[in-house]
Design a protein around this nucleic acid. Structure first.
Length: 841
DNA sequence: GCAAGGTC
């Protein structure tokens, strides 16, 4: 059997369709779709991955010891070398010891661990476990393997990872690589009859990108998060792409802040070509406006002089009429960036547009939405696409016209690649077929496609020069003379500005002028669409990731609103990094990396050398950051405090803030007046964010709580508030008292000081029975009793539905389950925490 | 709890 591995399911299906002598059979291996078919009597199977199936991470079990360096073995079975550079032999810590008895644990987020994290070994861990299982299952039976992932650097890496998985179960089957750049019969058949070898260097280039992104991202993110800790789930991230992108936004904001507006004056006159006097003067069809030939007067005196000159005038002379025709070229085919920019102007954010496009693509309405290409390949039958969408009545007449013209020629953009065709419609859709937002995007794609096959538009521009008592005025009009592509593509079209017919030398009515004082505007903030274009220009991110990067910046609250403005926090982060770790704030880091990756791919250098150099550079910059942590902390403090503010203290009137305990890092609400004011409120578990609205019941501040894997909820911070009162629930008999021959009830209640909820025996002082309960979710009692331990069962209802449980932590049934889970883990490794937990109670 | 890159 021949196994063909592609990057995505869609490609696996297409290749099967193009190579199979008969229709391929769609099958499944576990839950992964595969396609089986015959080629010259040989059995072939294609399987699609889901992009990267392995993910790099720091070897989780590694510890760096004072004596002996890295301890442990990576998951791949390699012993870890102790290759920490000499500069780190004495870490830049004075007060705190960098090492515990056990060494520096890299898994824990500790400042002391960061210098070692820079040099921590990285291994590849499985990410798509289901797919890996299916792939290995097929690879076991394969006589030969063809890697047919996308023909680019990431594709080569994805293929190399897939091959590594195959090799674990099948070390001998011959392997080859198919390189194709379009899903056409000729291209695919050509690729499979000219199979080549895997490009190991190219895959290594991709792997070095992964390593560098992880190392820089993890070290700087952890640094920023730890330097001014603001609670779990409150991460301040940094990365090779997101930080320079944020820096762009911050730089623009700084320009705006530094901008000094200048006054200027604009004079506009009212004219009428028809009326010379009378009550309807200036209102008929002949009325129009014209500005003074000096568009902006720099001084009030000059403007006043011009106004004075025309003050008494009642007529104007038409000094000149010029008409000029100019052609507006039809737009070029959509790639991802231009689609996102066009959709952004129509009010769809890039992230939303990509979700909609993905959905349209999956349902077969548009072609693959992640492309750089802006030139239709010759293999694309343009007329056929036109016929396909002509069934939509809104496009029908235009399509008919296009088809009647004969051979179609399309516009061409500047970027020509062979990855995928530009985005075009692949099926007919009407507003009845799709939800409104999807149709909005489909309509944009379909109209753009038709526009790229259309003639240019011709605009007739008219410029009329007028003379009012010696002062020159100019009126401009633009009329769409030949619609061309504009007949089908109205996006961004200016309204016609028509002027009445005017003859040179004629005298018309002048109905006075107005003078308005204005101010020059600072450079505009980026819209999301503009920012995506700027990122592309600077080489930041890829067509598939730019929208997600911007969304990430919103999520961590570095930026807000659209057009985008940076938050105080975003500005503080960029300033701090720019000062001490400037490499991460500049797009050059990506440009350098691209150059080095080309070198690796060309065999001129190695992944080890490139990643090593990058590690040394990061080590240096971290060496700058660490001694300045107090400065950085201070710079972030104001911004963090602004986000942490929840309301006023009821006792002293100062700010109440979300705070983290220095020792335990647990969250609580404290008064900014501490230590003079000791007001505090407990907080439930989860990510805590402030909300502006006070509690509708008691007027105290509220917070948004997002517990692990739960929906966010808004709660009043005052445990005494009526909204936080829960009735005690009697859940049943206490099994311990019962066994001792006594009778006592178990009652569920919440501790107002810690907010923890538990089931406690009414006779706690004597019997000591107390079981913990989940912190949130409605609680109901049942009549049932746990079979294993006799404790009463309870039902907790959360957003995920009701969940029946035995509250007894030491219930024998639970231990059995733990063992089962531990047994299911690979190698039957015994789990220590289970024993630890038991001893804790 | 980190990044960025694929794809769902």
């Amino acid at each position: 059997m021949k196994l063909v591995v592609t990057e995505k399911n869609d490609a696996a299906q297409k290749i099967a369709d193009l190579l199979g002598a008969t229709k391929p059979k769609a099958d499944k291996v576990f839950s992964t779709p595969v396609y089986r078919f015959d080629v010259d009597g040989e059995e072939w199977v294609t399987i699609g991955l889901r992009g990267h199936i392995l993910e790099p991470d720091f070897a989780p079990q590694l510890v760096y010891k004072k004596r002996g360096g890295w301890q442990g073995v990576t998951a791949e079975g390699e012993a870890v070398p102790a290759d920490i550079p000499a500069t780190l032999a004495r870490p830049p810590f004075k007060k705190k010891k960098p090492f515990t008895e056990d060494g520096v644990e890299l898994k824990s987020w500790k400042m002391e661990a960061l210098p070692y994290l820079v040099y921590a070994p990285i291994e590849k861990l499985p990410k798509e476990k289901d797919i890996i299982r299916s792939l290995k299952n097929l690879a076991k039976k394969a006589d030969s393997i063809v890697i047919a992932t996308d023909f680019d650097r990431e594709g080569e890496l994805i293929g190399a990872d897939a091959l590594a998985c195959c090799r674990e179960v099948n070390p001998t089957a011959p392997v080859s690589r198919a390189r194709y750049s379009a899903f056409t019969k000729a291209e695919i058949q050509g690729a499979f009859s000219n199979l080549v070898a895997m490009d190991e260097d190219l895959a290594q280039a991709g792997a070095s990108r992964q390593d560098i992104d992880l190392i820089w991202g993890a070290v700087l993110t952890r640094y920023l998060t730890l330097v001014k800790f603001a609670g779990y789930g409150n991460v301040r991230s940094s990365g090779r792409v997101q930080t320079p992108t944020l820096a762009l936004i911050v730089a623009r904001e700084r320009e705006r802040m530094a901008f000094v507006p200048e006054d200027y004056w604009v004079i506009r006159g009212a004219f009428d070509a028809d009326a010379t006097a009378g009550p309807t003067a200036g209102e008929g069809p002949g009325a129009f406006e014209a500005g003074h030939a000096t568009a902006r007067f720099k001084s009030a005196a000059a403007a006043d002089a011009a106004m004075a000159a025309v003050a008494g005038a009642a007529s104007a002379r038409v000094a000149a009429v010029e008409t000029k025709r100019r052609t507006v070229a039809a737009p070029v085919p959509f790639n991802t960036t231009s689609l996102l920019a066009a959709a952004s102007s129509e009010g769809l954010s890039p992230a939303r547009t990509m979700r909609l496009a993905e959905s349209l693509y999956m349902d077969g309405y548009i072609s693959y939405p992640r492309v750089d290409n802006t030139v239709y390949p010759s293999s694309l039958d343009l007329a056929e696409v036109v016929r396909t969408i002509a069934d939509n009545p809104a496009y029908a007449p235009y399509c008919k016209e296009l088809l009647a013209k004969g051979a179609l020629t399309a516009t061409r953009g500047k970027k020509e690649t062979t990855d995928h065709p530009p985005i075009y419609p692949t099926a007919k859709a009407t507003p009845d077929d799709l939800p409104p937002a999807e149709y909005k995007l489909y309509n944009l794609v379909a109209r753009r496609f038709l526009a790229t096959l259309s003639d240019p538009a011709v605009v007739e521009g008219t410029k009329v020069s007028l003379d009012v008592a010696g002062e020159p005025f100019v009126a401009k009009g633009d009329v769409l003379a030949v619609p061309g592509f504009r007949a089908i593509y109205p996006y961004g079209l200016k309204k016609d500005e028509t002027l009445p017919a005017l003859a040179e030398g004629a005298t018309i009515a002048f109905n006075g002028a107005t003078c308005a004082k204005k101010q020059t505007e600072p450079p505009a903030r980026y819209s999301q669409g503009k920012l995506i274009q700027e990122m592309e220009k600077l080489g930041l991110g890829t067509k598939s990731t730019r929208h997600a990067i911007i969304e990430r910046l919103y999520q961590v609250k570095y930026i807000q609103n659209d057009p985008i403005e940076p938050s105080q926090l975003g500005m503080a982060v960029v300033d701090a990094l720019d000062k001490f770790a400037p490499h991460i704030t500049h797009p050059d880091m990506t440009a350098d990396l691209e150059q080095k990756m080309d070198d690796i791919a060309a065999g001129a250098t190695t992944r080890e050398a490139v990643v090593g150099t990058s590690r040394n550079l990061l080590s240096q910059e971290l060496g700058e950051l660490l001694p300045h942590s107090e400065d950085v902390k201070e710079a972030l403090a104001d911004a963090v405090a602004a986000d942490a503010y929840v309301g006023k203290c009821p006792k002293c009137g100062k700010d109440l803030q979300i705070r983290a305990s220095q020792k335990t890092k647990s969250m609580f609400i404290g008064c900014a007046g501490w230590p003079d004011c000791d007001v505090t409120y407990p907080l439930p578990k989860g990510k805590i964010e402030s909300v502006p609205e006070p509690c509708p019941t008691c007027g105290m501040p509220q917070v948004k709580v997002t517990a692990f894997r739960a929906k966010p909820r808004t709660v009043c911070i005052d445990p005494a508030c009526a909204t936080n009162q829960e009735p005690d629930v009697v859940v049943g008999e206490c099994p311990v008292c019962k066994a001792a021959g006594k009778e006592s009830k178990l009652v569920a209640r919440r501790n107002p000081r810690t907010l923890k909820r538990s089931v406690t025996c009414e006779n706690f002082d004597e019997c000591g029975t107390r079981y913990p309960l989940p912190q949130y979710g409605a609680l109901t009692a049942t009549d049932e009793v746990c079979e294993a331990c006799g404790a009463p069962m309870v039902i907790v209802t959360t957003a995920r539905g009701p969940w029946k449980l035995c509250p007894n932590f030491d219930c024998p049934a639970k231990e059995q389950e733990e063992e089962k889970k531990a047994g299911a883990r690979k190698g039957g490794a015994k789990r220590k925490p289970a024993a630890k937990k038991a001893s804790k109670r």
